[in-house]
Design a protein around this nucleic acid. Structure first.
Length: 159
DNA sequence: GCCAACGTTGGC
DNA sequence: GCCAACGTTGGC
């Protein structure tokens, strides 16, 4: 099983939006970056876990955990000319973009803010992709050791 | 709003 | 294949 981090701007789709979705589940559509797509399409497996990260907001950080509940399948928002993420180059016969379904696992008891994560950028979280300079990927893998460490931060913040 | 860091596009 | 122009991301 693999671990991931999924970014979303809360003004567009927040963790609470996920919580309020039917079955606390949603399709992770709109990804239009090849590297992020490849992670979803080629490496994500049903049953994987992912951190839900809020970006471009007052307090960027990890706010919850979701489970991947489907393998990747064509992102049909790319086929809809009225959709914000429409891409004429993607067709049902030859889909360019893919998405997975995710379901809320749980909210973090205490969100782990970006600034908190940065405290460990030269030690425990040195290799964390999120903290790498200039990283803008919206879907990225998380090393199991980093996953565990971040959960430890959550427990520490809550004790 | 600013700006660094990318990724993409398209002319050549 | 090169690279300038442009668009996007996302922290601050």
């Amino acid at each position: 099983m693999k671990y991931w981090l999924l970014k979303s701007e809360p003004s567009s789709f927040s963790f609470d939006d996920l919580r309020n979705s039917e079955n606390a589940q949603t399709c992770w559509d709109g990804v239009r970056n090849y590297q992020a797509r490849n992670f979803m399409r080629d490496e994500m497996k049903k049953g994987d876990l992912a951190f839900f990260y809020h970006s471009s907001c007052v307090e960027p950080g990890i706010v919850g955990i979701v489970r991947v509940v489907s393998k990747a399948y064509p992102d049909d928002t790319a086929f809809d000319p009225s959709d914000k993420h429409y891409d004429a180059a993607s067709t049902p016969d030859d889909p360019r973009w893919h998405m997975v379904d995710v379901r809320m696992e749980r909210a973090l008891e205490t969100p782990i803010t970006l600034s908190k994560l940065k405290q460990y950028k030269d030690s425990e979280l040195k290799e964390l992709a999120l903290l790498r300079r200039g990283n803008r990927l919206s879907v990225m893998p998380i090393d199991p050791s980093h996953w565990k460490f971040i959960l430890k931060l959550e427990r520490a913040a809550n004790s």
